[in-house]
Every structure is written in structure tokens, then in C-alpha cells.
């Protein structure tokens, strides 16, 4: 399947997940309620913890988002010579990202069940996964862009060829220069 096809299929999947979520029964106090003491503050409602079904929907929504991010990165990098070897590193980084996301959801499930929370750097475990793993993880994708720019994003040969093509086209049709005035 072509890259744009992957993006489209995942977008359809995201739409389907949203439809499922919107139709999933919402508990009366599923979202935040006014704090009983402090007016500008909220507390979670008594039904705030997602049930098992909603947790699955949420995990799927997050997992599809990660796939969508990777597909968009591939779409942006793709040239007429294809992905030039970027596909495998992108998939590997995406799987790592997905594993962290899954660990966060698993940690949250046990956190939501109550008891003494497992703490890491002062934060409950699922929050620590979010802050210290999920947030920095995309640096892998950033590295591909920064380090692999000449190889995967725009090769010097492609840029030189573009220069030549644009120069040839300009020479062919001296298109009126749309100079902006003062």
C-alpha cells in the first residue's frame, strides 16, 4: 500500500474509534466536577475511572495516533525515489513508542484500582511514564530528521536536480515577475 493509503486507512480507523467513544455510555460523573471547597478548581467525579471497555477504546485511540504520526512522517519524507530506507527505522521507533504507551495504560490500570501508588521521581507510575518516557520518546523521530536529513528528507542530488529543473522552466517561459510594490 502507498504511504498516502496508509494515512487514509489510519484516519478512517481514528474516525471509527471516535464514533465508538462518543457512543460509549458516559457515567454521570465521568468528567471533572467543581471542587467542593475551591471555586476555580475541579476534582475528578466519582465515576472518573474509565471502565475496561473505555480503557480499551482509549488505548486503541492512542495506538492509532502513534501509527498516524509515523505515517505522516513517512508521507513528508517520501520523494519520487520512495522512502530511501527510512521505513524500517520509522517502524522500529513507532513500536518503541507504542510499547511505552502500553506501559502507561497498564500502569494506570493498577493505579486506578487504588492502594498505595508506586512512585517514580515523586510521581505516580503512570504519570511518570507519561512525563519521563512518552514525552521524550519522539526524540527518536527528531534524530532521524536532524541526522538523516541529507539521506532521507532531501538529498543534495535531489536539491541540485530541482535547481536545474526550475532554472530550465524559468528559461523556457520567462513568467512575469510578480514583484510586490512598495
Amino acid at each position: 500500500m502507498k504511504t498516502w493509503g496508509v494515512v487514509f486507512v489510519i484516519a478512517l480507523g481514528l474516525a471509527a474509534i471516535l464514533v465508538a467513544a462518543v457512543n460509549w455510555p458516559e457515567q454521570p460523573q465521568g468528567q471533572g466536577v467543581d471542587h467542593p471547597e475551591f471555586a476555580a478548581m475541579q476534582q475528578s467525579g466519582i465515576d472518573a475511572k474509565p471502565d475496561a471497555g473505555l480503557l480499551w477504546i482509549g488505548w486503541s485511540f492512542g495506538a492509532l495516533q502513534i501509527a498516524f504520526f509515523a505515517a505522516l512522517l513517512a508521507l513528508g519524507a517520501r520523494s519520487r525515489r520512495g522512502l530511501r530506507g527510512l521505513g524500517v527505522p520509522l517502524i522500529a521507533a513507532s513500536l518503541f513508542y507504542l510499547a511505552i504507551w502500553t506501559a502507561l495504560v497498564v500502569a494506570y490500570r493498577s493505579y486506578a484500582n487504588g492502594g498505595d501508588p508506586v512512585l517514580f521521581l515523586g510521581f505516580p507510575a503512570p504519570t511518570a511514564w507519561m512525563l519521563f518516557a512518552l514525552w521524550p520518546c519522539p526524540i527518536l523521530f527528531t534524530l532521524y530528521y536532524v541526522v538523516g536529513f541529507d539521506r532521507w528528507i532531501a538529498t543534495p542530488e535531489d536539491l541540485a536536480e530541482l535547481e536545474r529543473t526550475l532554472a530550465r522552466l524559468r528559461a523556457q517561459s520567462e513568467s512575469p515577475n510578480e514583484e510586490t510594490d512598495r
Partner: peptide
């Protein structure tokens, strides 16, 4: 409120995502 310092705060999982 333990949920407020959990990963979804008071908004809930789907809202955060």
C-alpha cells in the same frame, strides 16, 4: 484527589487523548 495527579487529570482519558 488521586485522579488529578494521574495521567488524565480531571478531564478523563479520551479528553486528554
Amino acid at each position: 484527589d488521586p485522579e488529578s495527579i494521574g495521567p488524565w487529570g480531571t478531564l478523563g482519558m479520551m479528553g486528554c487523548l
